[in-house]
């Protein structure tokens, strides 16, 4: 109703919304379809209702702590305001979810990329989340904005990783730097930064090997990479993006915590949101660690990466209940 309308009608972002809508269609149908049912079929909002509400959010992989807190809050709001109509409850859910994300702050999904400097973005994450693909897509975006982009193959470990990134660089037509497989990532990155400086690159996108956050040596390696970058370019990396697979469950929160300790994560890229998974853990990450989501991956095509927009995301999740 009121809030919802103002939220989604004032904006003219048809294209984006359409993408979210297509990308998340399955998401809505499978999960939040039941939310509509739940709300419409309940005339009173009692224990059972809130238990089920809890389950619906948990089904979206929103962190358990966050859900328990969120539902308790909803309950107190509903009781306090003596909310009775199901429409009001729907509005309240959307509004509170929005608040949960923004927390009265300005949350920007823009990357800290400025003119007239070498901008460095480091991509980290566990294995198989889609770091390389994300780099390809972001390179494409900034090339279209007229930036001079270079990719660095910092994943010197996984078989075929260098080749994979190289193919992406050829696809989007940007420069590419790599050494042979097995090289020390720090030295690859060091050299790449020198080259980027010499050739006045605007944006350096650094791929790293996927690593599970409990592998201490690999995390140390990342720490070193981070240090090398900071030493060569003050204030860099300007962004360190943690790529998280939308199918990831509660472990996503652990990933964010541990990677954040080592590298100071500035944002999350939620990949593979075009499946049936909801990627709710990203909301948990925002809630518990205050790390914003910067992008969502909505497909395998080069243009299938969208800046994250909480309004669109909530819309994607809830469109069916209204």
């Amino acid at each position: 109703m009121g809030f919802f309308n103002s939220l989604f009608n004032k904006k003219e972002k048809k294209l984006n919304r359409e993408k979210y809508r297509i990308g998340m269609a399955k998401t809505r149908n499978s999960v939040f379809g039941s939310l509509k049912e739940l709300i419409d079929s309940n005339s009173k909002f009692d224990d059972d209702f809130f238990d089920e509400l809890e389950e619906i959010f948990i089904m979206a992989d929103i962190g358990v702590n966050t859900v328990v807190k969120f539902v308790a809050h909803l309950r107190s709001e509903i009781e306090l305001n003596k909310t009775e109509s199901s429409d009001d409850v729907k509005d309240l859910i959307v509004e509170e979810m929005f608040k949960l994300y923004v927390k009265d702050e300005i949350v920007s999904s823009n990357l800290d990329i400025l003119d007239d400097r070498l901008n460095i973005v480091l991509f980290v994450g566990v294995n198989g989340v889609g770091k390389t693909t994300t780099i390809g897509k972001i390179a494409y975006e900034y090339l279209n904005k007229g930036k001079k982009v270079m990719m660095v193959a910092g994943d010197t470990f996984r078989a075929g990783a260098i080749e994979q990134l190289k193919i992406w660089s050829e696809r989007v037509k940007c420069s590419f730097y790599s050494k042979e497989e097995g090289s020390d990532p720090s030295s690859v990155i060091y050299d790449a930064i020198q080259l980027a400086k010499e050739t006045s690159v605007d944006l350096l996108l650094i791929d790293t090997a996927g690593r599970l956050q409990n592998k201490i040596n690999l995390m140390k390696e990342l720490e070193k990479v981070n240090k090398v970058i900071g030493r060569e370019v003050p204030e860099a990396p300007h962004e360190t993006l943690l790529v998280i697979d939308a199918t990831t469950g509660q472990n996503g929160l652990v990933q964010a915590k541990v990677f954040n300790e080592v590298t100071d994560i500035t944002g999350v890229v939620l990949s593979k949101l075009d499946g049936t998974a909801k990627g709710g853990i990203a909301l948990g990450i925002k809630d518990e660690l205050n790390i914003p989501i910067k992008y969502v991956g909505l497909g395998e095509k080069i243009e299938d990466l969208e800046p994250f927009d909480i309004e669109e995301y909530i819309y994607g999740l809830f469109a069916d209940i209204f």
């Binding site: 948990i58 566990v126 198989g128 697979d245 199918t247 990831t248 996503g252 998974a277 853990i281």
Partner: peptide, 28 residues
């Protein structure tokens, strides 16, 4: 992927329905 969340069920059921999967391997 052993880190998969709630969606594991949907994914596995769907693959199973379409292909009659005979076994799973849990990675990572």
């Amino acid at each position: 992927d052993s880190m998969t969340g709630q969606d594991a069920v949907t994914v596995a059921s769907s693959f199973n329905e379409q292909l009659s999967v005979t076994g799973a391997i849990l990675t990572k």
